[in-house]
């Protein structure tokens, strides 16, 4: 799936989210920079609804507006409670954390962690 990425931020404890594609938390590092770059999106079919099919070892490619490609390899997949914000903590490596809603009545978050391919 090819999706456009839009910058977003948390305003008054509420996450901005776009219906046009994937949201990038602009307070986190850019994908490929040192640290944990956070991306998220609706679990709609045309956005991240199929994210639950991804498997460790598969690749996620992010292309910048300057046509720079960064390839990330999926390392971990987990399902967490919404209160588990530890997945957003910064790291010393270069990774992306991509998540969407899952579970009964969207009570969980499906989280994919991928590392920059060296």
């Amino acid at each position: 799936m090819d999706l456009e990425i839009f910058p977003a931020k948390i305003v008054n404890n509420r996450w901005e989210i776009t219906a046009q594609g994937v949201s990038y938390l602009s307070s986190s590092p850019l994908p490929g920079e040192k640290g944990n770059s956070v991306l998220y999106g609706h679990n709609w079919t045309n956005i991240l609804g199929n994210l639950i099919k991804i498997k460790p070892g598969e690749e996620i490619v992010i292309v910048s507006n300057r046509n720079n490609k960064r390839t990330f390899v999926v390392e971990h997949i987990s399902v967490v409670d919404p209160e588990n914000t530890q997945i957003l903590a910064n790291t010393s490596d270069r990774r992306i954390t991509l998540y969407t809603c899952s579970g009964f009545l969207d009570s969980k978050r499906f989280v994919v962690t991928a590392l920059l391919k060296s």
């Binding site: 588990n84 998540y99 809603c101």
Partner: peptide
């Protein structure tokens, strides 16, 4: 993980 303080975004 308290850097952001709130729960993960509802995306459903």
């Amino acid at each position: 993980g308290e850097i952001l303080g709130v729960s993960l975004a509802p995306t459903g």
